[in-house]
Amino acid sequence: MNLHTLAIPTFTQMLRALSAQLDKGAELARAKGFEPSVLPQSRLAPDMFPLAAQVKFTCFQASDAVARLTGQAPRVMPGDETTVEGLKAVIAETIADLEATPEAAFAGAEDRMIELKMANGLIFDMNGLQFLRDWSLAQFYFHLVTAYDILRHNGVPLGKPDYVPHALPYLRPGTAPGA
C-alpha cells in the first residue's frame, strides 16, 4: 500500500463527515432558535481552542501532511473563518486540494525525510511513513474528535453513524449478542 491509498481516502471521508456534522449543528441552532454563529466559538474548556479552530486544525493537518509527503512546501493554517458556512468552505477546499493530488506525487513518500519544526524550537525528524502514521493522523484525529465533542457538548444529536458514515456500506445484519 502506498501512502496515497492511506492518506487521501482517510482524510477526505472524515472531512466529509465533519462537514455533515456542522450541518447538523446549524440545523439544531435554527431549530432551537439561536444563531448558528454561536457554535464556531464554542469550546469544551476555557483553555481549549474553539470549534472554529478545531475544524481549521483538522483541515490543516490533512493538507500539510499531503504537501509534505509529496515534497511540497508546508502549508499555512486556513484564515479566520468564524461561521459554519466559512468552515464548511474550508473543508470543501481542503477536500478538493487533496483529491487533486495525483497518486504519482506520492512516489517515494514513505522514505522522504520530513523535518517538522515546532513553535517552541523543537524539531521532529521522521520519514514519510513515520510522519503520516505517528504525527499527521494522530493530530488530524485529535482535532476531528474534539470538533465532534464540542458539537455534542452543545446538544447536536450526533452518534457513531455521523462520525463514520463511510463505514456504513460495510454493515450487514448479524445476530445480536445473547440472542
Rank of each mutant, 00 (worst) to 15 (best):
E115L: 11
E115G: 04
D80Q: 12
V66M: 04
E110M: 07
T94C: 11
R75S: 10
E103F: 01
R112F: 02
E81T: 09
R68W: 01
A73E: 11
A100Q: 05
G86F: 08
F106K: 04
D111G: 01
P74F: 07
E93M: 09
E85Q: 13
L69E: 05
P74K: 14
G79L: 09
Q72Y: 06
Q72V: 06
A67I: 07
L87W: 06
T83H: 04
M77W: 11
M77Y: 14
E103S: 06
A65M: 12
L87T: 09
A107D: 08
A105L: 01
E99P: 01
M113A: 14
E110A: 15
T82I: 03
S63I: 15
D111P: 00
V90A: 11
A107I: 07
R75V: 13
G86E: 03
T101F: 00
Q61V: 02
G86Q: 08
D80E: 13
A96D: 03
D64F: 06
M77D: 03
G79A: 11
I114T: 05
T101L: 00
G86Y: 04
A105H: 01
T83F: 02
M113C: 03
T94H: 07
T101S: 05
A104C: 05
L87K: 10
A96Y: 04
A67W: 02
A67M: 08
E103H: 06
A92D: 09
D64M: 08
A107V: 14
R112K: 14
V84H: 04
T70R: 07
E93Q: 15
A89L: 14
T70C: 15
V90M: 05
G79T: 12
K88N: 03
E110T: 08
L87D: 02
V90R: 13
Q61G: 03
T101E: 01
A65H: 02
G86H: 07
